[in-house]
Simulated assay, not measured.
Amino acid sequence: MLLALDARNGGLTLGFKRSGAWLPLARLGSERTADEYAFLFEAALQRAGGGQGATVQSAWLSSVVPALSPRLIEGVRLAFGLETQQLAPGVKTGVKIRTDQPSELGSDLVCQAVAAYALVQGACIVADFGAALTFIALNGAGELLGAAIAPGLDTAALALRGSAAQLPQVRLDLPERAIGKNSAAAVRSGIVLGYRGLADAIISGMREELAEDAALIGSGDELGRRLLDGLGCRHFVPDLALEGLALIAQRNGYAPGA
Results as ranks from 00 to 15, higher is better:
1 M>N: 07
1 M>E: 06
3 L>A: 13
4 A>S: 10
8 R>L: 11
9 N>Y: 01
10 G>N: 09
10 G>F: 00
11 G>H: 02
11 G>P: 06
15 G>M: 05
16 F>Y: 14
16 F>S: 05
23 L>Y: 07
23 L>T: 05
27 R>D: 12
28 L>G: 03
32 R>D: 06
32 R>C: 10
35 D>Y: 08
37 Y>L: 12
37 Y>G: 01
40 L>N: 03
41 F>R: 02
44 A>L: 04
47 R>M: 12
48 A>R: 00
49 G>H: 10
51 G>N: 10
51 G>K: 03
54 A>W: 08
60 W>T: 00
60 W>I: 01
62 S>L: 08
65 V>Y: 03
67 A>F: 09
69 S>L: 11
70 P>Y: 08
76 V>D: 11
78 L>E: 02
79 A>F: 03
80 F>W: 06
84 T>R: 00
88 A>T: 13
89 P>K: 00
90 G>R: 00
91 V>Q: 02
92 K>G: 08
92 K>F: 08
93 T>E: 14
93 T>Q: 14
94 G>E: 11
94 G>F: 08
97 I>Q: 05
97 I>L: 15
98 R>H: 10
99 T>E: 00
101 Q>H: 14
105 L>C: 02
107 S>Y: 00
109 L>S: 05
110 V>I: 13
110 V>Q: 00
110 V>C: 01
112 Q>K: 14
112 Q>E: 13
115 A>C: 14
119 L>G: 01
125 I>Q: 07
126 V>T: 09
130 G>M: 11
131 A>K: 04
133 L>D: 00
139 N>K: 06
141 A>G: 14
143 E>A: 01
144 L>F: 14
146 G>I: 06
147 A>R: 05
151 P>W: 12
153 L>V: 09
153 L>Y: 05
158 L>W: 06
161 R>F: 01
161 R>A: 05
161 R>P: 00
164 A>C: 15
166 Q>K: 15
170 V>E: 07
170 V>Q: 14
174 L>W: 13
174 L>H: 07
175 P>D: 01
177 R>D: 12
181 K>A: 10
181 K>P: 06
182 N>C: 07
185 A>C: 02
192 V>L: 04
192 V>G: 00
193 L>Q: 03
194 G>C: 10
195 Y>E: 12
197 G>Q: 13
198 L>P: 12
202 I>W: 12
202 I>M: 15
202 I>H: 12
203 I>N: 00
204 S>Q: 15
205 G>Q: 09
205 G>K: 09
207 R>D: 06
207 R>I: 03
209 E>D: 15
210 L>D: 09
215 A>L: 13
218 G>P: 10
221 D>L: 11
226 R>L: 15
227 L>N: 05
228 L>Q: 04
228 L>W: 09
233 C>K: 09
233 C>L: 04
238 P>F: 02
240 L>V: 09
240 L>C: 08
241 A>K: 04
242 L>S: 08
244 G>T: 03
247 L>V: 09
247 L>G: 13
250 Q>C: 13
250 Q>G: 04
252 N>F: 02
252 N>L: 06
253 G>K: 04
253 G>V: 12
255 A>F: 03
